[in-house]
Nucleic acid binder design. Structure first.
Lengths: 210, 210
DNA sequence: GTTTGACTTGACCGAACAGTCAATTCAAAG
DNA sequence: CTTTGAATTGACTGTTCGGTCAAGTCAAAC
């Protein structure tokens, strides 16, 4: 029997949207309910608490967006270094898209939420860690494969993957704070130097503007 | 006539402490007042709003901690690349210190606050930008000097400084999310590759533990 | 000794907060 | 037709939120 009501999924998406566009702070139960078009009683029919909804929303976002995107970007059909190229383009495209559609660069909801709730919501933070580690795993395995092919020479792939990921998230958060998608593009050159290999330059349609 | 009351400064420090240890969300006026030992009426005698206190607190933190530390780390008496070495040690020491004293790695209050309030508090975000740009300026001028001395060869120092800064902040935020100071140490090797020069290894007292 | 003004106090406001609950709707299974 | 239970509703609770305000205290300036 398929789900009768779409309220649950609307709540998940309203939570993600609000965390991403505003913050976890702005994601009050009332605000989520209004955005989802769901009454408060129904909220607590589907989720035992606001925290539980947030955790479920992260899983939902991962399953519906992040994982499919990463499976495409890091597809084995692509040479390992080309995956990084695709990853850079993906982040940049999303930042530009954000600014066009929402008037703001929004960065990474996992990372923002993790930073915001790290000292206050252990359950939620555990979920964020789980997802960030999964993300980093894609980077690490691409580095391992590139190493094996002799494309690069990295001593500590796990550590390097962590640094690349931090560079991406750091640039992305700077882009959010400065509301400037170009901050995301900066890390192309940095990434090349970091892994010690040239990544084929992408089609650069210059759209510099602040 | 020197300030008669210490309430103002106690409020500034209570705000910074709360943002850093918890979040801006947790920094309610009541919570700040209680920590500072100040009644709410006095709060609004010194500051016209909570946002105004937060902005003033950032300036206070910069003037009393960040700027003195950076002036030391980036002292002209030190060779440019040695400044980066000192910077890395400084971030790592602070992360370890945090975990020892507060039981948690806390990251950078400017960056956390910026990410949390970017989409909701334009005045506060402007202040965060101003301070982050100042911080990045130290990195950029060290790169310029290292370039001039022939220690390194960097094409776009401003862009590279932005990447280094994002790497630092990204690692630091990962350390906060994972509550693991070692995440900060990771970026030593990454930074060397990023600027294309060996930074003299520091005394490595291995204290690996999670 | 009176005036001044920085500083303090605690009560108060309306709004927003997370969460509860009894009553109700309604489609499908028996 | 009746039963069942998932789904929905809106009123409700007690707390906390940012902010206001009138009434004070008190030390120094005049």
């Amino acid at each position: 029997m398929p789900p009768i009501s779409t309220a649950r999924i609307r709540l998940l998406e309203a939570m993600i949207e609000t965390i991403w566009r505003r913050s976890y702070r702005a994601a009050s139960v009332d605000a989520i309910c209004e955005r989802a078009g769901v009454r408060k009683g129904s909220f607590y029919h589907f989720f035992k608490s606001k925290t539980a909804l947030a955790a479920a929303a992260l899983d939902h976002l991962w399953a519906t967006h992040s994982k499919p995107a990463l499976d495409d970007i890091f597809s084995p059909s692509r040479p390992p270094l080309a995956r990084f190229e695709r990853l850079i383009d993906h982040w940049y495209e999303r930042a530009v898209e954000c600014q066009r559609d929402h008037g703001r660069v929004l960065g990474c909801p996992y990372f923002s939420l993790g930073s915001e709730t790290a000292a206050a919501e252990p359950e939620l933070t555990a979920k964020v860690r789980e997802i960030l580690d999964r993300y980093q795993g894609y980077l690490e395995s691409a580095l391992l494969e590139a190493n094996a092919r002799g494309d690069i020479r990295i001593d500590r792939p796990a550590e390097t993957a962590a640094c690349i990921f931090s560079l991406i998230e750091g640039c992305s958060t700077q882009a959010r704070i400065h509301n400037d998608p170009e901050r995301v593009r900066h890390f192309r050159g940095a990434l090349e130097r970091l892994i010690g290999a040239k990544i084929r330059p992408t089609s650069q349609v210059s759209t510099a503007e602040v």
